[in-house]
Design a protein around this nucleic acid. Sequence first.
DNA 1: TTACATGCAAACTGTTTGCAAATAT
DNA 2: ATATTTGCAAACAGTTTGCATGTAA
Lengths: 138, 138
Amino acid sequence: MELQETELAERLRVAGLRPTRQRLSLAAILFGAGDRHVSAESLHQEALAARIHVSLATVYNTLNQFKAAGLLREVAFEGDRTFFDTNTSNHFHYYLEDSGQLVDIGSEDLEVKGLPELPAGTEIDRIDIIVRLRKSRS
Amino acid sequence: MELQETELAERLRVAGLRPTRQRLSLAAILFGAGDRHVSAESLHQEALAARIHVSLATVYNTLNQFKAAGLLREVAFEGDRTFFDTNTSNHFHYYLEDSGQLVDIGSEDLEVKGLPELPAGTEIDRIDIIVRLRKSRS
DNA sequence: TTACATGCAAACTGTTTGCAAATAT
DNA sequence: ATATTTGCAAACAGTTTGCATGTAA
């Protein structure tokens, strides 16, 4: 599923974002190969490694713009850095405590049972689930 | 369920923490009245309002020590501030998007169904669930 | 040619830390 | 008396922002 540059550019335009060189490059990294979980720092590193010149500030701005445009999702997570997920559909995560990695749970039919009645006048926006895994003690 | 100062002091001692004036005061606020969700800042404000002199740094240190001692639990949450929960048992949260409030889900029998096999060599440390609620559009 | 995007450095926010003074044991 | 805790200010990490320069339309 290689993405054409024109296709990426179109996606950005639809989102109201000019397809600039840096936005296209970041979009290519993010959307070019399956679901990704990135922090601003990790994406910046990845861009540098690919010899793409982008400033960290632009990475931050871009991630926030992509998020606002619905191209990315921020992952609820305690910790110092913010993670963004290219999978914007409703799904859940493993958090590997040893490595600090965030991984999609590969199951469509995960569900929450036994939710009591919601407070009056409210509805569910979405449900975030993080299953925290540690090395099993043997 | 008023807590005696001696009882609080005992709890701290058991946790290996000297029952100092500021730790006792903060413990009284935290454990004196049901389950609480606080940030360092909010707890500091509350202490000041009660004319208790504690520095913000001490509030941070105290919250981390209480957490390390198992008296508090940190809540996984995307956002700038860290929240601590006086309810250390396994339970889940509503997040009220309008008010920014975090509320315990009042159900013991909430459960997650359909979790696939875990990655090899890992086990569940715990599961965090945040049900994000918004005002229902009428 | 005009509005928008970028890069840099400076600002900001939440949190942690070093150290001298204060306190608990 | 001794080890621990506190408060303050300085340090820190992640993130945002102001502004001059560069770029897309």
